[in-house]
Design a protein around this nucleic acid. Structure first.
Lengths: 204, 204
DNA sequence: TGAAACATTGCAGACCCTGAAATTTTTCCT
DNA sequence: AGGAAAAATTTCAGGGTCTGCAATGTTTCA
């Protein structure tokens, strides 16, 4: 949405850049879905888009990053969503709202994400990166949680745990959604996971 | 402990293998702690132990794996611990006991683990691998949880979520322990994290 | 001791990723 | 339109990771 909207305000150059980036991403996803991660080289991907391999690395720092894509919510975006929730709302509830918003964002790009998740399932080495466990996003969200909870980071462990648990809930919801072919409502699955968390993970 | 015990029943060959493996692990950890992950090559590590780089790859499939080490509880071991807990104990409580046992195991190798965790903190790209994100261990534990909870895996999402949350709790406890220089009791920190989980992560 | 089993090594090679310089394309200004 | 400035792409060179394969040692056991 953001991309499409702003694309019309961009010059030819930046439009082409976005196109190339999207094409590389798409080629990477489809090729890896077909052959598996190990059987696809960067050169394959670059050739499918008809650019040099060096150009690929101008867009993505690694082969994996092309699969993860830039669709990932940026740390700043997630934190902004979190900060937008009134302070009286409990932390876990605020995290749930953040995750819901992200889930709706994902559902808007159904096909793309279902393909991506299929690739992730078939290549488990990519799984940890889901939801940006790059520890950059996690760190930022953790800091935002610490602010909200009124706790100094690094002492109680609460912000770290709440953030990690929320990420886990989101990841589980995404994988269930994917496993069910994208049939159920993703925000619904997110709510369900957060509900179990809030209830203290009682026996089902 | 397992290693030391069984070492005396092994022949010279296997004893030397364990020695070489441990030496490579130790060299990798100390070198990376000194210079950082990117500034240490496999050849550096191999040379420090006086073997060829090719031999390094006979022991570890990648540079990172030498840092993670084989001290990680194997999937089978973790599941065995989980299965050993009486069935009437709630799932989360059983996971807590499993994590505690693992924590005690870690504390027995204090220095080694503190060095490892220091390296992990300084090289965040390694963090996702902590607690066996190999998704092999996670899968096995998830299956054990599903069995215990009497749920068919892949439908409710409960086993996946409970496992992921437990792993997160363990990871947070480990990092807090490391950040505090290994002063607090690791099992205590684990208990604390699981306590917060069981309480539904209420605002602190 | 001799043979089988196994560990180590050197070598060739594919692949990943980076820096720097050369080339082409796009933009912008007159 | 014309041409200079800016930016993207490409080529090239090179270091690092990791894998087969064949050769060479070393350990084990009969």
């Amino acid at each position: 949405m953001t991309i499409v909207d702003s694309a019309e305000e961009l010059g030819r150059r930046d439009r082409k850049k976005l196109e190339t980036r999207a094409a590389l991403e798409h080629a990477a996803l489809t090729l890896v879905a077909e052959r598996g991660l190990a059987a696809v080289t960067v050169e394959d991907i670059a050739e499918a888009v008809d650019v040099s391999s060096r150009t690929f690395f101008n867009y993505f720092p690694s082969k994996e990053d092309a699969l993860i894509g830039s669709h990932q919510a940026s740390a700043a975006e997630l934190c902004a969503r979190l900060d937008a929730v009134p302070a009286r709302v409990p932390v876990l509830e605020a995290l749930r709202l953040m995750a819901r918003a992200e889930a709706e964002h994902v559902q808007e790009q159904r096909e793309r994400w279902l393909l991506r998740l299929k690739v992730f399932e078939q290549n488990p080495s990519l799984l940890p990166r889901l939801v940006a466990s790059g520890s950059e996003t996690e760190r930022a969200v953790t800091a935002a949680v610490a602010r909200r909870a009124g706790v100094e980071p690094g002492t109680s462990g609460y912000p770290e745990l709440a953030t990690a648990a929320a990420m886990a809930a989101f990841r589980v919801a995404m994988l269930r959604w994917s496993a069910a072919g994208g049939r159920p409502s993703l925000p619904g699955l997110v709510d369900e996971a957060f509900g179990q968390l809030a209830a203290g993970l009682p026996n089902p």
